[in-house]
Amino acid sequence: MREYFRNTWLGIYTVLVGMKITFKHLFTPAVTIQYPEVKLKLPERERNRLYVNMDDCIGCDQCSRACPVNCIEIETVKSIPGEDLGVTSNGKKKALWVTKFNIDFAKCCYCQLCVFPCPTECIYMTDVFEFSEYNRNDLIYKFATLTEEEAKEKRINFEKFTAEKEAQKTAAAAKLKEDQKTAS
């Protein structure tokens, strides 16, 4: 009999305790973050979309080789003497025209392995993570700053230069042979 009344009392009392707690929570401010309008600050070493600072890129291809899924495509053209490519921010002289620097984010696995080998620290992770697209091809990001015509021009320049050099070389070789002939 005593337990019966105890149960009754406990039933009413515990319900009231619960109601008191929920009533308190009715007036505590919400913890919701209104996502598209308000964004949480991401952690310091977050790994999201890559960015390449082309001013610093020397076209060394190390990031492309480090990539485990081969999502970075780089093509370079050697510069010819007399062309000034400028220097990177840490003082290295650039020697290559980067004609193509594509990163396919559909393939990218955000492992950050490409970031560490970069000698000029020009490829790094940003905090952008909302870049979904309807078309898969739109996920190929082109970072190269040279336009296609410029790239073509550089290529032709380089080919001309090599051809000239070759011609010079053959001419020099021929001259050397002649000299030797006349000498003997």
């Binding site: 929570h25 009715l26 505590t28 919400a30 913890v31 919701t32 209104q34």
Partner: peptide
Amino acid sequence: KVSARIQDRI
């Protein structure tokens, strides 16, 4: 709305 407020949501 009340359920949200009780669970600290909006």
